[in-house]
Design a protein around this nucleic acid. Structure first.
Lengths: 115, 115
DNA sequence: CTAGGACTTGAAGTAATGGTGAAGTCAATG
DNA sequence: CATTGACTTCACCATTACTTCAAGTCCTAG
């Protein structure tokens, strides 16, 4: 059972409280509940949200990120981090390749109309 | 006044008819009307849509593309094409730089949590 | 114990990019 | 003239990633 409230996780992770609740609904993070039904997070929640934000910069959707984080245990080992790392890198590189392909087409000398 | 129907432009440009109408609503292309209120396009419409698709590959929104195409006269001169070309290239390169920055952060050796 | 801030839910709103379906109209053909 | 396929508008559906709102509850400090 965690000790952090929504607001605390929000501040620690740099997103809004509504986003924290949204991420919990989406399964990116999990929370315990107090007797009064308030969410209490473990400190890894903020970490997972930070990872999620990096993944968003790479262009992953929240759904993609849920799957990504599903492979990340509560207390990740170096190998887990490495796996995440590799997946994010591969995805970023894929997107870069797509953009390069578009650039190549644009610069191909053909009229843009004929692409 | 053009001669092409929605369906013809759709086939020529590779998008659906509903997309053609959508693009007209959004101001990416313009159409005349027959006495019976049907759209009739000039042949440059398909061209503009093709340009729009390229711009989408680069990551521009329809709004961005409207602005981009607003600078493109009905009968574009080489300089007009060059301007488009430059803007698309710059935008693609910017996005590639952003992804590279993300890659650098991911590969920085710091824990993903601390980014 | 009470005031106040932080929290709860669910529903609805937003912007982007179209797709879908209904009900009706137009145009070309046999 | 009647059919048929393509067209028209309008309005609603879907997805993504949240935000906002209302009404109500919890928790902590004084």
């Amino acid at each position: 059972m965690g000790t952090l409230t929504v607001g605390e996780v929000a501040r620690e992770s740099g997103v809004s409280g509504s986003a924290v609740r949204f991420y919990e609904r989406q399964g990116l993070i999990t929370a315990g509940r107090t007797g009064g039904n308030q969410r209490r997070f473990d400190s890894d929640a903020a970490c997972r949200i930070r990872v999620a934000r990096v993944a968003q910069r790479v262009g992953l959707t929240v759904n993609d990120i849920r799957d990504l984080l599903a492979a990340l245990p509560p207390d990740p080992q170096p190998a887990d981090w490495q796996g995440l790392h590799d997946r994010l890198t591969a995805e970023a590189e894929r997107r870069i390749r797509d953009l390069h392909a578009a650039l190549d087409d644009i610069g191909s000398g053909r009229r843009l109309c004929d692409l």
